[in-house]
Amino acid sequence: MAVLTVKDLYKTFGAGTPRANRVLDNISFDVRGQTFVSIVGPSGCGKSTLLNIISGVETHTSGQISVTSDDGKPARMGYVFQDPRLLPWRSVRKNMLYVQDQADDETNRRVDKYLDMVGLGKHGDFWPGQLSGGMQQRVGIARAFAVEPDLLIMDEPFSHLDAITARALREQLQDIWSQSKKTVVFVTHDVVEAVELSDRIIVLQPGGKIFEDITIDLPRPRRQTDPAVATLQAEVLARLERMKGMAPQVSAAP
């Protein structure tokens, strides 16, 4: 089980210059074990920057951040982006293998397993350009799970998809997650999506501070149409309404 610890984290773009722009302001939280945490907030509140810092793509200005794994090895991370980010000149299978440590039989079996899980078992030899946007995003999800990450980071992975495809992929994600039970940090601006998927929602407000940390205690699997999910969504939305200046975007339930 992975433990993600974020303590007193600050991020300022252009620090020390007249154009300095603070996007994360004293962020502290931790995520332990088989937990699905969503980070919610309006555009520009620093959600994606926080994910980039956790994944190591971006450096933070000050504070501490660590990801530890059980086995003492460096924590392995998987990343699902807003867009699929596949190499267009490599087949689906080679895209999956590109991010793997090794290309042995065991890895190949794992790649096949996750391609099957996202329903693309027969598309391993396709070019990404031969797949629809939704199928490409499923490859992106399978790629992230196939590295068997200690921590899985997802940055608004369904925001570029149509409502029906997004709903299908959310349900698929829940199924895969319930089997693999990874530690997931999921960024979204969609409160409804966050309630459906998460054990916990961390709300960022404009300026990059944590506004609220909400526990979602509902049985799984969840569907947006479940009455308990709908009730809790309304409650969370009402709480977010109190956040002055924030206008959370809520997708229409498909």
């Binding site: 980039n52 190591g56 991370m77 867009d83 980010r85 590109y98 991010v99 980071i153």
Partner: peptide, 15 residues
């Protein structure tokens, strides 16, 4: 985007 993806997965330089 593809370079960031590679960094986030720690893909070795040669690959």
């Amino acid at each position: 985007d593809l370079r960031d993806m590679s960094s986030s997965y720690g893909v070795p330089l040669g690959r």
